[in-house]
Simulated scan of single mutants.
Amino acid sequence: MVAEVLSQNFSHLIRNKIISGVKVASTLPPVVMQQFVDDTFLFGQSSVIEAKEWKHLLEDYALASGQLINYNKSKIYFFNTDRNLQNKIIHILGCCAANLPGSYLGLPLTVKEVTPKFWESILERMQKKLAGWSGKTLSGADKLQLLSASLQGVPVYFLSLFKISIAMVEKLEKIQRSFLWTGMEEKARISLVNWELVYKPKYMGGLGIRISDLNKALLTKITWNLVMGNADSCKIMRAKYFNHTPFSSLVSSNDLPSGSKIWSNIVKS
């Protein structure tokens, strides 16, 4: 509720043309504030006047709400801004400047394809989880439960936004296969069932642990939320990329609007 008051105050400044915000699409008002989890994102033009207005409003918000803003943990991202102007804005707001590509909540902030190094970090995380499990003392059902709940749980956040490569799928499935049949022991054992059958959906007689299917399902869910969602972020994406064009017509055309790799993955899903 308090954050909503802050948002309305920023909107008031835009209506009175005191600040500009960022114009994302012609059919939407300028974007100045978005929130995700416990973080607040502010968007605006690189100007001393706008920076001062932000600072005054944020100080008033902190005084009225009792919530202190941690400027030491806040970051400013500049685009096409002169270095001298950057320094002035940094001085006014009291934040540090940051550069892209970077990361947010472990996800890379980039418009390009994620590098193999990014996926290698996922592999390492999965292997560390396995290191604490004594697979040889677990039953087959126990191992399957761990695979479903923990191994697939590690990369889900990343699979929700990025399309995983076939090579990386094979590496992840190798970890799954090794744990399921050997408990990650050094000694090799014969696989009891062909892996092609194991990773099939349960209704087809498999165990339902295929990572590539999970990746496609999660990207499709993002697409559904984008097309049907009422959140401001969904409205912004629709206005920017759809331009009142039905999504089905958009993805079937050869003239797709350009965007980040995440947008490309959504369209391909």
Rank of each mutant, 00 (worst) to 15 (best):
M1N: 06
A3N: 03
E4Y: 07
S7Q: 11
S7H: 07
S7I: 09
Q8E: 08
Q8N: 07
F10K: 06
F10Y: 13
S11A: 15
N16F: 05
K17E: 14
S20F: 08
V22Q: 06
S26E: 12
T27H: 03
T27N: 10
P29G: 14
P30T: 06
V32C: 13
V32D: 04
M33I: 14
Q34K: 08
D38T: 02
T40L: 08
F41D: 01
L42K: 04
G44M: 00
G44S: 06
Q45G: 10
Q45T: 14
S47V: 04
V48T: 10
I49Y: 07
A51T: 01
W54M: 06
W54I: 01
K55S: 09
E59V: 05
L63A: 10
L63H: 08
A64P: 01
A64W: 11
Q67P: 00
L68R: 09
L68V: 14
L68N: 04
L68Y: 03
N70R: 00
I76T: 09
Y77G: 00
N80V: 01
D82S: 08
N84A: 14
N84H: 14
Q86S: 10
Q86K: 13
K88C: 09
H91G: 10
G94F: 05
C95E: 07
C95R: 02
A97Y: 01
A97F: 00
L109N: 01
T115A: 11
T115C: 11
K117V: 09
K117H: 11
K117W: 07
F118H: 12
W119Q: 13
E120H: 14
E120N: 10
L123G: 14
E124Q: 15
E124W: 03
R125C: 09
R125V: 03
M126L: 10
Q127N: 14
W133E: 02
G135I: 01
K136L: 14
K143L: 01
S148D: 08
L151S: 13
Q152K: 13
P155V: 02
P155I: 04
Y157A: 11
Y157F: 11
L159D: 03
F162L: 15
F162I: 11
S165Q: 10
M168G: 05
V169I: 15
E170N: 12
Q176H: 13
T182P: 05
T182K: 12
T182H: 10
M184A: 07
K187Q: 14
A188I: 08
V193A: 04
V193C: 09
N194S: 10
N194A: 13
V198P: 04
V198W: 04
Y199T: 10
Y203G: 04
G205M: 02
G205L: 09
G205F: 03
G208K: 11
R210M: 12
S212Q: 12
S212M: 10
L218D: 02
T220K: 15
W224N: 06
W224D: 02
L226D: 03
V227N: 07
A231P: 00
S233M: 08
K235E: 00
N243E: 05
N243P: 03
P246Y: 14
F247E: 07
S248T: 14
S249A: 13
S253I: 06
S258K: 15
S269V: 06
